[in-house]
């Protein structure tokens, strides 16, 4: 546990001592903010559910994928490129501690980056006169799904970083994988017509966002994301361990 905290702390310092984390936060918030503003303006005077305004911003999901990629791409790839992995793995730490420490730090920065988006509904409430009370439950379940999906995406990014030697390769692979995971099931589901292939619907990120932002807590989606995250972290640990395979 102490090793985990030490590693988590170091990675966190790694994010915040360079300007990269700050620049990224600013850019992400600027773009999602613009998206929010655009959406709000577009629907000005129309009846519109709050969840659509906050969770259906295409920009926010693009940003989630980009942030998950950017935060995780260097975690292992950079250690391998610079050779620091040798120093790290000859210290008395387990592979799982290293994976979890890095993952937790990426997740922390992810949360910090997106935390200010919670202001959007509050801003809306403050500046629109006719709005009803905010559905706190729906907001909460929407954000819970947001965090779950972000956690899964970060674990995919971490895995890609563990299998590649260069940050760029890791970034390209994880962004491609995330786009596929995010878009493919939903798009296919629509293309086929939502009839026969039920599994596509279960995997569709659109479906999950829609349900959760309406306040529907679907345990299937929760189990899906938690188990997928667990699996990616497990796979990452195995990749790290594979160095020791004879």
């Amino acid at each position: 546990m102490r090793n985990f905290l030490t590693l988590w702390r170091r990675e966190l310092d790694g994010y915040f001592v360079s300007s990269a984390a700050y620049v990224m936060s600013v850019v992400v918030l600027a773009i999602t903010g613009l998206g929010f503003w655009g959406q709000a303006r577009l629907n000005c005077g129309e009846p519109l559910r709050l969840d659509i305004l906050v969770f259906w911003l295409p920009t926010i999901w693009l940003m989630v994928m980009i942030v998950a990629t950017v935060l995780t791409m260097r975690l292992f790839a950079e250690e391998k490129r610079s050779g620091t992995i040798e120093a790290l793995m000859t210290a008395p730490v387990t592979d799982a501690e290293v994976v979890l420490g890095k993952y937790a730090s990426a997740l922390t920065v992810f949360a910090v980056t997106f935390l200010p988006t919670i202001l959007y509904p509050l801003v809306l409430r403050r500046f629109s006169s006719g709005i009803g009370p905010i559905d706190g439950g729906a907001l909460l379940s929407g954000y819970a799904m947001f965090v779950l999906m972000g956690a899964f995406y970060a674990s995919v990014g971490l895995f890609m970083s563990a299998v590649s030697r260069s940050q760029i390769v890791a970034a390209v692979m994880s962004f491609a994988a995330l786009c596929g995971i995010f878009l493919l099931p939903g798009v296919l589901d629509h293309a086929i017509g939502g009839s026969g292939v039920a599994i596509l619907r279960f995997l569709s990120a659109f479906e999950h966002i829609q349900d959760s932002s309406r306040g529907i807590v679907d345990t299937r989606a929760i189990v899906l994301y938690i188990s997928c995250t667990w699996f990616m972290l497990f796979a990452t640990t195995k990749v790290l361990e594979s160095r020791r395979w004879v």
Binding site: R10, D13, G14, V17, S18, S82, G83, T84, I85, E86, A87, T90
Partner: peptide, 13 residues
């Protein structure tokens, strides 16, 4: 105590 040949260190620390 192991010191690798390339002396890998974290440059930002």
């Amino acid at each position: 105590g192991y010191m690798p040949e390339t002396v890998p260190l974290y440059p930002e620390m």
